[in-house]
Design a binder for these strands. Structure first.
Lengths: 338, 338
DNA sequence: TTGTAGGCGTTATCAT
DNA sequence: ATGATAACGCCTACAA
């Protein structure tokens, strides 16, 4: 395996010139740089990761903690993991995966062994055991999600309240006065996930603001529960003309199948919109308007914020990403009253 | 941050003694070891990862490549990722995640920068682009899955043919003579995933061996396709008394709901068994007999095989894990012919 | 603009 | 059973 010495020799320069060429930490004359670069390519040189970590101030590794709980949607978690990893690679960082049974210990371990420059935490609950640790460790860390106590933390997440408000606003502007919200299973709200609560509260607040009637159900994932959930909504709101779904993928497709079975047309009879979904609602039948939750956006921002801390700016921060509305024709003005 | 020198000083020994105490590479007198251990704890000492990588022969890191394709079941992938990470931690290894768009380059990168000691590759297709690279890189690597050409590779996977044969055998022994197989969507078979093919072929071979009639459908994931798939099976096999499912979770639950809707009782009218599922079929309604596909087993074995290569034994190998049968009361002898 | 040299914290090879 | 010490490969003041 070629070392920096081999490169230096072949290029006819000193090793520091090679090092600086790579890091860009000082200006190198064009001809010199060219000789170095071609020597590097000729030898297929790669800096030794261990040496870099030891001598340098950076390891170029992020630790990613991704706990898996009973009701974790694995697909959603995976999307965030990949988004973070992809964003990290763009700035020459790699991602080390810390799993649930290792998460608290692991944070301490990768930190004090100087394996990782910073930490990114996924799927944060309101009362997350990792948060005190993050505060105590006092190293660059970014949380994707918003725990109850954000004191001293750097957090990033979609603005769920804003998303709910945007959803209500769009439907209200179309003329809807009765909007149903179909949420996650009850257990998800109990357990301490924060985003379902933030969305629900934002939804109800925005609706109250505009004098709109709402009803809210939290069906389990099986067909029967979903049927009953819909029945409940229609019962609670006799004039229901719009439905907002903040739920898992299979639940949403099932809802669409049930509505189709019942001969309810979208958006003719009912406007439907999907809120804060990670999956692709454009392939649904019919394709749904949505306010997407983008793992890419959150991941990219988390990497940015972590780097910012690594490079010195340790100001705590809660960064809420603005929601955006994607139209696909599943909403329309409500049908004229009979 | 405490270094090995601090520990040595506090324990009143040389740094080599500390190092050997930690690595266990030579015997240390009991009293000495105790002094060292308490010094380590008192100082909260952690070996510097970079220094260890540089000086030692091991980095204690595995690279894990987990490509995400269009029809990847994210939950399944995540299970394997977690299983590998968990197994790795048990032998003091960490896992570095290589994402799809980085996978080929990434393998080269982590290898030649000496970031990882070995590679574990997930979700291998029959004709996987990473396989030639793995052969060329010539470093410890284990593939979870079985590509078309296993030459020079170390592979581990469930014995899908054996699993299919076991499924057919159990049902045949109960007296069933007509067995339907409900598989993955058609696209999955086309794309080059290997396990669905291996299962299907094993299924048909085992059935042929025993003179059993079979039919095979590959429904898409929506309700209609699944209904049609079941109809096809019942049409093709008028005396169908047993159903084997090798499909995604939502498809399997949907099948059970359809069967319940149609008043078909399990196992009274129809014996049903789930084959090679990663998810939990014990919570299904009714709970299903299954031949599980255990990510934990595959992950643990992959880690073992990778370590074996790291420690010198580079013999290529295809290790097929034996299937096991879990009874939950969803199979029974076929109903007496009317 | 480029070169020199000390040090990062371990591991492993010699000694003792 | 334990100690001393030379690598390991790179980064970064400090010199020139």
């Amino acid at each position: 395996m070629a070392t920096i010495h081999d490169v230096a020799r072949l290029a006819g320069v000193s090793i520091s010139t090679v090092s600086y060429t790579l890091s860009g930490n000082r200006s190198i004359a064009e001809p010199t740089r060219n000789r170095v670069v071609s020597a590097i390519q000729e030898l297929g040189y790669r800096p030794n990761a261990g040496a870099r970590m030891l001598a340098g101030t950076r390891t170029h590794i992020f630790a990613l903690t991704a706990p898996v709980r009973a009701d974790t949607q694995p697909g959603v978690l995976m999307s965030f993991v990949l988004a973070v990893a992809t964003a990290a690679r763009k700035i020459d960082y790699d991602v080390l995966l810390l799993t649930a049974d290792d998460s608290s210990t692991g944070l301490e371990r990768v930190t004090s062994s100087r394996l990782a420059d910073g930490i990114i935490a996924l799927d944060v609950s309101l009362d997350d055991e990792r948060m005190p640790l993050l505060r105590a460790l006092n190293i660059p860390a970014t949380v994707i999600g918003v725990p109850a106590d954000t004191d001293g933390l750097v957090c990033v997440d979609l603005d769920f309240e804003g998303a709910a408000s945007l959803a209500v606003g769009r439907l209200a502007d179309l003329g809807h006065r009765s909007i149903g919200l179909l949420g996650f299973p009850h257990s998800t709200y109990d357990w301490g996930a924060n985003y379902p609560l933030r969305f629900r509260d934002g939804f109800q607040a925005a609706a109250a603001d505009r004098g709109i009637d709402t009803a809210f159900v939290m069906p389990a994932s099986d067909l029967d529960s979903i049927r009953r959930g819909l029945d409940e909504l229609f019962a609670a709101l006799p004039r229901l003309t719009a439905l907002v779904m903040h739920a898992g993928e299979s639940v949403q497709t099932t809802v669409l199948e049930i509505l189709a079975d019942r001969g309810i047309s979208i958006p003719g009879d009912l406007s439907v919109l999907s809120a804060c979904a990670v999956f692709d609602t454009s392939e649904f039948n019919p394709p749904l308007d949505e306010i997407p939750l983008s793992p890419e956006d959150s991941g990219t921002r988390a990497v940015e914020l972590t780097i910012r801390q690594i490079t010195g700016d340790r100001t705590p921060l809660v960064d809420l990403l603005p929601p955006r509305y994607v139209s696909r024709g599943s909403t329309a003005p409500p049908p004229a009253a009979p």
